[in-house]
Simulated scan of single mutants.
Amino acid sequence: MVTYGERMTPDDETQEAVFRALADSSRRRLLDLLHARGGQSLTELEEEFAMTRFGVMKHLRVLSDAGLVVTRKQGRKTLHFLNPVPIRLVHDRWIDKYTEPQVATLAGLVPLLEGASPEEG
């Protein structure tokens, strides 16, 4: 396991938790299920997995600790909801800045390609 020194900021710790949470396919599946329909109970979510109730609870805890899932009590039920904000922050920090030059280049090619005749290829 990698350990970090004191130079790690709270934002870095948050993003580290998000990356760690997204690294597991079961957790990504839970996020997909909550994206499709928010407000699901543990019982509803565990029906989608070939693992124990405790296993699903552990995955939900990791997602919750990363801020990706929020829970709300409704009577006796605890409902789970997707919080997409941490994923968006990771996108803005790590994905968007790396794709912007490539997208601008591709967008610049569109007029050139649309102006080409079929014989020109």
Rank of each mutant, 00 (worst) to 15 (best):
R29F: 10
A50C: 03
L33G: 01
F54A: 15
S25P: 06
M8R: 15
M8K: 13
L33D: 05
T43V: 14
R37H: 14
A36K: 12
D24P: 00
Q40N: 09
A17Y: 01
L45K: 02
S41A: 07
L30I: 14
L34Y: 00
D32A: 14
G38A: 12
L31W: 03
L45G: 01
A21Q: 01
R27K: 03
R7C: 03
M51C: 13
S26W: 04
A21V: 02
L30D: 06
R29Y: 08
G39I: 09
L34R: 01
A23S: 15
S26D: 12
D24K: 08
L30F: 08
L34T: 01
F19G: 04
Q40P: 02
K58F: 10
M57L: 15
K58W: 11
E47F: 03
S26Q: 13
E44R: 01
T52M: 05
D24R: 09
D11Y: 14
M57G: 09
A50G: 14
A36H: 05
S41V: 07
E48N: 06
R37C: 07
K58R: 15
Q40S: 09
L33A: 13
L22D: 00
G38W: 03
L45F: 07
F49R: 09
R28I: 02
Q40A: 12
L30A: 04
D11K: 13
L31P: 05
T52G: 15
V18Q: 07
V56H: 00
A23R: 13
V18D: 00
L30Y: 00
L34V: 00
L22A: 02
V56T: 09
L34A: 03
V18S: 08
E16Q: 08
A23C: 10
R20L: 14
G39W: 05
S25C: 02
E48M: 06
Q40V: 02
D11I: 13
L22V: 03
V56F: 04
G39F: 05
T43C: 00
R29K: 15
E16C: 04
S41I: 04
F19Q: 02
G55C: 05
T43H: 07
V18I: 10
G55Y: 04
V18C: 05
R20N: 07
T52K: 10
A17W: 02
R7P: 00
A36R: 11
M8F: 13
S25K: 13
E13I: 13
T14Y: 06
M51Y: 12
F19A: 11
S26N: 14
R28G: 02
G38H: 09
Q40W: 12
E47T: 02
